[in-house]
Design a protein around this nucleic acid. Structure first.
Lengths: 194, 194
DNA sequence: GCTATCTGCAACAGCGTTGATGCATATCAA
DNA sequence: TTGATATGCATCAACGCTGTTGCAGATAGC
């Protein structure tokens, strides 16, 4: 439930919706207070066309958040959080998530409404995340006494930080960034044991 | 340079300015798009009074950001980043910064204009931060091959994450939070050596 | 080709916010 | 006390954004 309450849109209409969502992400990530007019211009579409598909501005934002949440969930699932070896899953998921999160900064930053489908997706992803961390702990990758909820928060924070891209990072391989995130999460900045 | 281009304000006027800045922080941290009217109400002041002290809305925001930057700089200095033993400085600065950052979430989140005084303060703080990290590395607290710029970014991210306060944290001692931040920064989540 | 759908354009009313002004009143400081 | 300063209040014009509507033309789908 989410996209189709009426019959499917015509081909061109669906193309418009996609263009609008992508343009909205592009514009709103640079200025969260941008007007519908600006979004419409970026989408190559008249403002009224946006209002035809999304009654209120909030409806557009919600749709955007939901769309991005789905992509992110897909990125997590692709990492096989339940079956792949923890270290592998951790790395793969990190790389996948970095990719998606970088492309949907605004949409994934929108606070999800308590009962919404987007919120449910995010909760489910948090669950998957904890699963991976638990499996990692069981294998000794994470300290036995660690508070996994804190670890998860740190993980999220590191993911977010990786995306700011302080000059040096521009153009760096996603896998390299992911490796750094995972390494920092597990070992911090302290001296390495021989 | 910053506060006094004309002669000092009268006592009650200065009180108003303080009330306005504090109210602005309170209101804007909950809704960055809040109107001047809402801020004025929260400050117990007429909207026109705000406009008397701050010509544009942006002027108010800038003043707020500058005020908060100064407080944060003070918090850093109080930790003696140049003279105290690195581990001590790291902990003290972290605790101090957590205190200030928690109270001025919005003001410290405002993007600082390139040439502004606030930007200069933030740059100086970044410098102090790197100094502490270098001294910590010299003492072996941080790995010799570590990229201190990345470490600093991670440190900032951990500070930010500590302030979200996921239920459990509410009412927890600042020193405890600081200890967790520093510990995570240095050791990550991996298993501890005996 | 025919029809239903989609789109752009233009115009509209409504709304909230901003920033400015004048004036009467309250408060501080000397 | 007295003069300068600060404040509240009412009012104003201007602006931008939102959301809606009607219509004519373009496009997709059968």
């Amino acid at each position: 439930m989410g996209e189709s309450s009426a019959r499917p849109l015509r081909a061109d209409a669906e193309r418009s919706v996609r263009a609008i969502l992508e343009a909205a992400e592009r514009v709103l990530s640079e200025d969260p207070g941008a007007s519908m007019e600006q979004i419409a211009a970026a989408a190559g579409v008249a403002r009224t066309t946006i209002h035809r598909r999304f009654a209120h501005r909030q409806a557009l934002v919600d749709a955007l958040a939901l769309s991005a949440a789905r992509r992110l969930a897909q990125a997590v699932d692709d990492g096989r959080p339940d079956t792949a070896p923890p270290s592998v899953a951790l790395h793969r998921i990190t790389a996948n998530v970095l990719e998606v999160k970088g492309a949907w900064t605004f949409a994934l930053g929108v606070p999800t409404a308590p009962g919404s489908e987007a919120a449910a997706i995010h909760q489910e992803m948090a669950g998957h995340c904890l699963t991976v961390l638990e499996r990692a702990r069981a294998e000794g990758l994470i300290d036995a006494s660690a508070d996994l909820h804190w670890v998860r928060r740190v993980y999220y924070a590191l993911l977010g930080e990786s995306l700011h891209g302080d000059a040096d990072d521009t153009g760096v391989d996603t896998d390299t960034l992911a490796a750094r995130v995972v390494d920092t999460l597990l070992h911090g900045a302290g001296p390495r044991r021989a």
